[in-house]
Structure formats: C-alpha cells, structure tokens
Computed example of a mutant assay.
Amino acid sequence: MNLFRPALSLGLALAFFVPAPASAYQIDCAILLCLAGGFPPSVPCTRARAEMIRRITPWPIEPPLQIWRCPMHAAFDLPATQRPVAHLYQIAATAAQAPRHPALPPSEAKLVDQLVQVATGEYSDGNQTADADISGPEFDFVRSIRVFSVEIARQHWIGGDNDTCNQSQRVRVGSYGIQGNFGWRGSSVAALPAAFEGLEGWADYSTPDGSHCPGIYKRSVFIEWHDHEGGYGFEQVDY
C-alpha cells in the first residue's frame, strides 16, 4: 500500500488551515507536495497548480517548480530519517492506524508546518538547486516535469513547379536536473508528447501531395508531469 498519497491529503488539508502570516507562506513548497500527490482536490493544491500554470504562460516562461525556494534542509537541519519525505511517510502511517481528528497531534502538526511554511527571507531569482539531496527515486516526480515551448510550428502547401510541404518550427523543452536545477534545450515537433493538441496532420518528408499537408499555425506552451505514484498530468496553453 502506498502511504504517500494519504500523507499529502492529510497533511495539506490540515496544515493549510492553520493560520499563518502571508509572508511566511511559500508557494513552491505547496507545489512540491501537491505535485507529488497528483494535485489532490483542495484549496491549497488548486492554488499551487494555478501558480505552476501561470509561470509557464507566456511571457516570460518561468520554471514551474522553483524548488530552491522551498528550503527542505536549510530551514530545519534534521537527520536523514526525519527529512521531508520521511515525515510524510510517518504522518501517513499514523493516519492509517488511527481515526482522523479535526486537527493533527502537536508533534505531527509541527512537522507539516515545517514542510509548507518557511521563515521569511530573501530568495534568489536564479536557477539554483534544492538545498537537500533529492537524487533518490522518491523525487523522480520532480524530474518528470517537462515544459515544451512551441514558439512557432507552421505548415502550408506550396504548389506549382516545386510542389512541397513548407514547414517552419522552433521548439524548446525545459527539464529538471538531478538536484532540481531547470534548463532549456532545443527540441522539435516530433518530440512533443502524444497529449499535445493542434498539430494533427503535421507532415513528414514523405508527404506525396498537398492533401497530406494541411495548413497549420501553432504557438503554445505545454507542461507534463508524473506524480509520486506515476499518474500522468498535463496542461496546454495556446497563444
């Protein structure tokens, strides 16, 4: 039985109802936790998902999860067995063994509070890395995030003496490194996920005639991810 999802549902649902100064709230901690749980239905996770999508809406396109803004280690120096992911499993195990109460026990509430609320302070806008080791498979959901920026995908048939399917494309993909650093590289229409919509009929070089080269003009940003259990999610923003 995977105990990660109950941890998120319990921890997020209760922790976000604890009054806290707005300046102490860090949206990237919420994005991290809600993303892991597949954005379970809740007000905080709805807000976290909306912020993630806002960041990839042109222009500019920002990293959807800025994990360096959620201090999982620096804000509270704990042994490895008490780091964020371990806390989630502990909370889940407790929830599975006992009836749920209107509020978490003080010890568990403190752990959740440490996960989703951080001390106020200045954070760099630079592309940094997580301040805790996230190289393990439990954080693969972070590295599953990919952002495709289709700056232009145009196709039309040119008839006459030089019948051809004229195409132009400029596509970039943003992804995360082993420690949560985000970077861009060149890509192509062919690499777009199957869930991407609007390029049906994009021809390959074997196109025999104009009937196989419909007119297409597309500009879009597409984000995809997998949660901690492998569930797939995506969002497409056309412009």
Rank of each mutant, 00 (worst) to 15 (best):
Y123A: 09
A132L: 13
L88A: 14
V85Q: 04
E235S: 15
E197F: 02
Q114S: 12
S107N: 09
P106A: 14
S188W: 06
Q169G: 04
H156D: 02
T207F: 02
N2D: 15
S124C: 01
T120W: 03
S107F: 07
H156V: 08
Q66G: 03
S23C: 08
A119F: 00
W202A: 01
I152F: 13
Q167I: 08
V150K: 09
I178C: 00
F182S: 10
Q90H: 08
D125L: 09
F222N: 10
V116P: 01
Q82W: 13
L192M: 09
S124E: 08
A119L: 03
T164W: 03
Q128R: 13
V85A: 05
H87R: 15
H87D: 12
D163G: 10
A48T: 07
S149K: 15
N166V: 05
A36K: 05
G11T: 12
W59D: 14
G215R: 10
M72L: 15
S42E: 08
E122W: 11
Q236R: 06
G159N: 07
N2R: 07
S42P: 04
S124M: 02
G38N: 08
G230M: 02
L35R: 04
R54F: 00
D28A: 10
Y123M: 13
S187Q: 06
G210L: 03
R172D: 08
F141R: 14
E200M: 02
P63C: 04
A153H: 11
Q114G: 12
T129C: 11
D227V: 05
D227A: 10
P214V: 06
G210P: 07
P214F: 07
M1N: 06
S206C: 00
L10W: 12
A13K: 06
D209H: 11
P63N: 02
Y25P: 00
R219M: 13
R69I: 03
Y239C: 02
G38C: 07
Y25T: 15
H101T: 14
G126Y: 01
H73F: 12
S187M: 12
V142L: 13
V173L: 11
G121F: 03
P214G: 04
R83N: 05
D204N: 15
A74Q: 14
I31W: 01
Q114W: 10
P40L: 09
L12D: 04
S124Q: 03
R55N: 07
N2G: 06
I223V: 14
V147R: 05
S187F: 09
S188C: 03
S144V: 10
S135W: 01
G198S: 11
A109S: 09
S23H: 04
N2H: 09
Q66V: 05
V116Y: 11
Q179S: 14
P21D: 13
E51H: 04
E229C: 04
N127R: 12
W59Y: 12
A92C: 09
R170V: 12
W202P: 02
P40Y: 07
F139H: 14
P21E: 11
P60N: 03
N162G: 00
A96F: 05
D161H: 09
A30E: 03
D209K: 03
R100M: 11
R5C: 00
L199K: 00
H156A: 04
F39Q: 00
S23V: 14
L33M: 11
S149W: 13
A132Q: 10
F148A: 07
F76W: 07
M1C: 10
V173S: 07
S135K: 05
